[in-house]
Design a protein around this nucleic acid. Structure first.
Lengths: 205, 205
DNA sequence: GTCTATATTCAGATAGAC
DNA sequence: GTCTATCTGAATATAGAC
C-alpha cells in the first residue's frame, strides 16, 4: 500500500511479466530468463518469490482462466428476456476477449497439453453455474415455444465457438482474407452484435 | 518399394513418430528423444535423415496444415446449390477433424507461436482458392435474394468457428457439461448436419 | 530482499566405430 | 545406415555474499 505505482513491488513485477510471457509462449515455450528480463530483475528472484516454474505457471493459468466466464451467472439471473441474455453474453464475452485476445488460445492450449496441472479441479470447483442456468433457460424457451427445439449443448457450443474462434484463428484469417490489423479489430467489434443476431435469427420461431 | 508395410523404411517411421509427437506436444514441447523412442530408433538417426528439429517440424507442419482445407475448391465448382454447398463443406470438414481431432489446435497454436517458420508463405502459396469462390457465391446468393445480406467474411468465420472450435475446447466442454468421450463423439457426429442447418436457418430468406 | 556465481539437469547435435 | 558415446549449449534451480 506504499507507492501504488503499477509495478509497486517485486512480486507484482514478476507476476505481470510472467503473465505476458506465459500467455505469449505457453508453459513449454516460456523461459524463466525472459520473465526475469521483462520484470527487470534476475532469475534468482523468481525462485525466491515462487518455488519454481510450474508453481508460477499454475498461478498465472488459474488467474487467467478465471477471466474466461466473467459475470455470466449474474447475467443469467437478471430479468432480461432470453434473447437479450444472448445479446448480453455475446457482447460482453467478445469484449473481454478483445481486451485479452490471447486468452482463449492460451487456456485451450494448456488444457490440452497439460491436463494434469490442476486445471481440471480448478474448473470443477469454479464450474460456472451459468452453464446449468443457461441450459435451463434454453429448455424453458423451447417449452414456451419461443425458439425451435435444439440440444442446449449445441447452442452453447455454437455461441462460444463464434465468439472465441476468430481470435484463435486470427493469423490464418488474416492470410486467407487479406484483412489487416485494424480491419480485423473492426470485424471483431461488429461481431459483438452480429453473432447474437445470427444465433437469434436461427433459433427464433 | 520393397516391403510396403506401413512403416516400411526408417524415414517413414520417423515421420510417423514426429507427426504424433509434434501434434500432441507442439514444437516447443516436443522432444527429439520422444520422437526417437516412438520411432524405435535413436536420436542420431533423426539427424541423419533430417537436418534438425526445425526442419523436421516444418515438414510435419506443412503436411498437416495442408489437410485443413481438403477438396473445398472442387466442391465450390460443383453444380450444387448454395445451401447444399454449405451442407457439404460442413459435413466433410467436421469429418476430417473427427479423423484428426488435434489438427486445428496444432495448426492455430503454431501459427500464433511461430509465425516465422514459413507458414505464412506456405499458406499464401496454398491460399485456398475456395475462399474467394465462397465469398463470390455468398455475394451472388445475396444479390439473387436467396439469403439475407451479410458480410461474407463473417459468414465464413461463423461456419469454420462452429466446425473447429468444439474440438479445440474439448477438455473444457467435457468439464463444463459433464459429457464423456463417447457422448462427445456423438455430439460431433450430430454437428455434421446440425451446424449447416443452423447456418442456413439463420441466413435464408 | 537482492545480487553474482555456480551447480545441475536436460536437450539438441555431432563424432566416429561398425 | 545404424549405433554408442560424447560434446555443447541452454535452461532450471541453488548457494552464498552483501
Amino acid at each position: 500500500m506504499a507507492k501504488k505505482g503499477k509495478d509497486t513491488n517485486t512480486e507484482e513485477k514478476i507476476l505481470n511479466a510472467a503473465r505476458q510471457v506465459f500467455i505469449e509462449k505457453g508453459l513449454s515455450g516460456a523461459r524463466m530468463q525472459d520473465i526475469a528480463d521483462k520484470a527487470e530483475i534476475n532469475k534468482a528472484m523468481l525462485h525466491y518469490y515462487f518455488k519454481n516454474k510450474e508453481m508460477l505457471f499454475k498461478l498465472i493459468f488459474q488467474e487467467t482462466a478465471g477471466k474466461l466466464f466473467p459475470h455470466f451467472e449474474k447475467l443469467m439471473d437478471s430479468d432480461l428476456n432470453f434473447f437479450d441474455k444472448i445479446r448480453s453474453i455475446v457482447a460482453s464475452y467478445i469484449d473481454v476477449i478483445i481486451q485479452n485476445p490471447y486468452i482463449p488460445l492460451f487456456v485451450m492450449n494448456e488444457m490440452n497439453k497439460n491436463p494434469e496441472i490442476g486445471m481440471k479441479t480448478f474448473f470443477e470447483a469454479q464450474k460456472p453455474g451459468f452453464v446449468k442456468k443457461f441450459r435451463q433457460a434454453i429448455e424453458n424457451s423451447i417449452e414456451m415455444g419461443l425458439i425451435e427445439p435444439i440440444n442446449p449443448i449445441h447452442l452453447i457450443m455454437n455461441m462460444f465457438s463464434m465468439c472465441a474462434f476468430p481470435f484463435i484463428a486470427k493469423p490464418m484469417i488474416k492470410i486467407l482474407t487479406g484483412v489487416e490489423e485494424e480491419q480485423f479489430r473492426n470485424l471483431m467489434e461488429q461481431r459483438k452484435v452480429l453473432v447474437a443476431e445470427f444465433i437469434i435469427n436461427s433459433i427464433k420461431k
